[in-house]
Nucleic acid binder design. Structure first.
Length: 494
RNA sequence: GGUCUCAUCGUCUAAUGGUUAGGACACUAGGUUUUCAUCCUGGCAAUCCGGGUUCGAUUCCCGGUGAGAUCACCA
């Protein structure tokens, strides 16, 4: 049984880098029909942020990666919150003390820093084990008083990484790291090894920053007489400039923010997965089910990838077109199921659009869908269907085609258009008839399409993008269409 | 500075000991005799450098260079 885990530290939101690691772990588990576990690594009281635990748990669910075991739902190895597992770490620590592989750190922080400074001054790497005491006793009262250190056994290691391949490192990187801090909480280095063993995790999928520590973990696994799990190291997502790992300080956004910004969950997941993974074919668009079916760690890229928002935007457009109308509409009005408090996508309709009926919204959506890059574009593309737009003549003035004809001619064109379109009766106000009438108008006025239709389009919508003219007229209705043409043709002389 | 890792179009990537080095995004030129957008077609554009192995290397090896990570009582 394959068991993978996502083990975030509740120090804030989860950004795309975190989420990609979670996604890969999720895909490995689901692909194999195994279990996906969520464990909170809250062992640093100083860095902990209030509410971050719930926020991250929620994000993982919202992003479509339901876990089988976790802090809020329990499981066979509960609790899944490290701050509630202190006794467990104590038990494992005692084993190490008993076998002489752990000792209470007798040095003060100042003393350690002095040794470290000396090493730096000598341009040599600092190794605690060069200064460790000759006796390895841990006094009975060390817990909560002093740090407990691992008594390492330096040696060279070779190991296999599912993503990076065969790796190796020499004994010089092995050191006496801290197992349990003087406040009684374990370090990540110790806690994750214990928990992965207790929780029977078969795979550790994590970011590149842990690679240099792996030999130390291997040393610890040996001391605890544990078989190390399969390791998979995922390269970092780099910032836009490509010169740094994408972190919060470099503007790495909350993954949920992309949802709020109008990106579809499908597009975000698809994009994050393809950042460093592909199935070897030329397929670009993958649903979550396809990802589950096709994902493998062996095909994950070894080098870091940049986060290219333009590609994400393209992918989002692809997914918007793929969703059926009802589903897409559900996304535009936001998730109002009430299951989650924060981080939910909003209602994307503009002020006027929000007041319209769902049926009307779907009608509008059906004609603007091809033009949507993100759901946040919706107001710009739809408000004019719900409320009469304010004329903006600079749009006409700045249009290259329309610049060719003088103001009075524009007026004439619009008036003619209004007169001719008015000849269509209400019952015949349909796309096909409008199309024919518009074509007649083209001959009648001896105009080019970009000029005549561009002008009408502006008069009706005053928007940079809008659907085809016949569809727009139908949706606006006869009265409103004619009214807007009148308004425009009366103003154009000004 | 030590250690570890990585290196194909601007970006995400595919492929192979022998190919016109493929696709996608972006950019760009046309087309869809209705604008903008979508869509379609075309174009631009890459194997970091130097050695070695080989008939042949982008691919395997070595050395550079460049980039990233790490060297905490953070994870």
């Amino acid at each position: 049984m394959i068991r993978t885990r996502f083990a975030p530290s509740p120090t804030g939101y989860a950004h795309v880098g975190n989420i990609r690691t979670a996604l890969f772990a999720y895909l490995v588990a689901r692909h194999a029909g195994g279990k996906f576990i969520l464990r909170l690594e809250d062992t640093d009281k100083n860095r902990e942020v209030d509410g971050a635990d719930d926020y991250i748990l929620n994000a993982v669910k919202v992003l479509g990666m339901p876990y089988d075991e976790g802090p809020d739902i329990g499981g066979p190895h509960a609790p899944y919150r490290q701050s509630q597992r202190l006794e467990t770490y104590r038990v494992w620590a005692d084993k190490l003390i008993a076998s002489g592989r752990a000792y209470a750190d007798p040095l003060t922080a100042e003393e350690i820093q002095k040794f470290r400074d000396e090493a730096n001054a000598a341009k040599k790497p600092f190794l605690y084990r060069n200064h460790r005491p000759t006796t390895f006793d841990a006094p009975a009262d060390w817990y909560g008083q002093a740090a407990l250190r691992f008594r390492s056994d330096p040696q060279a290691y070779q190991w296999h990484d599912e993503v990076m391949g065969d790796l190796s490192a020499g004994p010089e990187v092995i050191d006496d790291f801290v197992l349990i801090k003087s406040d009684g909480y374990p370090t990540y280095n110790f806690a994750h090894v214990v928990d992965d063993a207790e929780m029977e995790c078969t795979h550790i999928i994590r970011g590149q920053e842990f690679l240099p520590s792996v030999p130390n973990y291997l040393n610890l696994y040996a001391a605890l007489d544990l078989t190390p799990p399969i390791m998979a190291t995922v390269p970092h997502i780099l910032n836009e400039a490509g010169n740094k790992k994408l972190g919060k300080r470099d503007g790495a956004k909350d993954a949920l923010e992309y949802l709020r910004d109008g990106y579809l969950l499908e597009a975000l997941i698809n994009f994050i997965a393809s950042l460093g993974w592909n199935d070897g074919t030329e397929q670009e668009i993958f649903s979550l089910d396809e990802l589950i079916a096709k994902f493998s760690l062996e095909r994950v890229q070894k080098s870091g990838a940049r986060f290219d928002e333009k590609r994400l935007a393209w992918m989002n457009g692809q997914w918007i077109k793929r969703l059926d109308l009802g589903e897409l509409h559900a996304r535009t009005v936001g998730c109002s199921e009430g299951k989650v408090v924060s981080g939910q996508p909003p209602n994307f309709w503009g002020p006027a659009g929000q007041g319209a009926s769902a049926e009307r919204q779907r009608e509008v959506l059906s004609v603007v869908v091809d033009r949507l890059k993100t759901l946040a574009d919706l107001p710009a593309l739809s408000e004019y269907f719900f409320a009469r737009p304010e004329p903006n003549w600079t749009m006409v003035d700045e249009n290259k085609q329309l610049q060719k004809i003088p103001g009075p001619d524009r007026l004439l064109l619009l008036q003619t258009a209004a007169t001719e379109l008015a000849k269509i009766e209400s019952v015949d106000w349909q796309a096909e008839n409008l199309q024919n009438k518009l074509n007649e108008l083209l001959e009648q006025t001896n105009s080019k399409p970009p000029i005549l239709f561009g002008l009408i389009r502006f008069a009706l919508t005053w928007a940079p993008f809008s659907p085809g003219l016949p569809e727009t007229c139908v949706l606006l209705g006869r009265d409103e269409t004619l009214a807007r043409l009148d308004i425009a043709s009366n103003q154009i002389g000004k």
